[in-house]
Amino acid sequence: MRIKRREFLKTAGGAALLGFGGISAFKVLERGRAEASAVLRDPKALTGKRWGIVVDVSKLNVETMKKCMDACHREHNVPFIENPKEEIKWIWKETFEHSFPETEDKYLAEEIKHMPLLVLCNHCDNPPCVRVCPTKATFKRKDGIVMMDMHRCIGCRFCMAACPYGARSFNWRDPRPLIKEENKEFPTRMKGVVEKCTLCYERLDKGREPACVEASDGALVFGDLEDPNSEVRKILGSRYSIRRKPELGTLPSVYYINVGGIEYA
């Protein structure tokens, strides 16, 4: 039987496609099989369902805030960039009136309006940044941490547009030369990726509290919001607290108490 050239090409092409498809499917299966049981969680790791932080604003002063910021930025190799347009910030100072702009109140004392407090990623329970990421480079962990996988980020900055808290920074240039002293235990970032606070996942996974909490002299309290016996829950159950932009439905996990000092609370 004579096969026409056209038909031969069709058959050959089809067979080749099937062949390649088959091989890659097989490879995927094979990859899943290799050493599936070889990895464990560190027994020391802290486990929670939804980590959160309560910031006691009355205990924050310039010195403690600096300690928190330095501890975080040193630990995570956050570069120091003077140009505010290219700045990279994981936890930083912002005045009350700018952190909570919708609470605009002209009768509020100037010193409270301009009082600085600490802001950081809110690790929202319903995070818009995670919703928009086209590669799952930012995702929510089982313990509620809104995490960044810097390996996977393509630098599209959709998450920066989606975050209503300005918590995300982009590496407009190579950050390496601008890191004051390198922490050899933690990676840096490269140019072209987005970064933000990761709630010290690397410390939690080894059984330690976040660096800012540790350095805060008790101004920052860390715990599991889903655990009714946790310290954060005890504070939140007995005190009036506020969160940034709760009306957006993002459900932030960072709470602020004693805003304006104890005498005002």
């Binding site: 070889a38 990895v39 464990l40 560190d42 995702f139 962990r141 995490m147 939690l204 996974d205």
Partner: peptide
């Protein structure tokens, strides 16, 4: 990074 499992056997 993604699963929080840090011990390899």
């Amino acid at each position: 990074v993604r699963d929080g499992n840090t011990i390899y056997t």
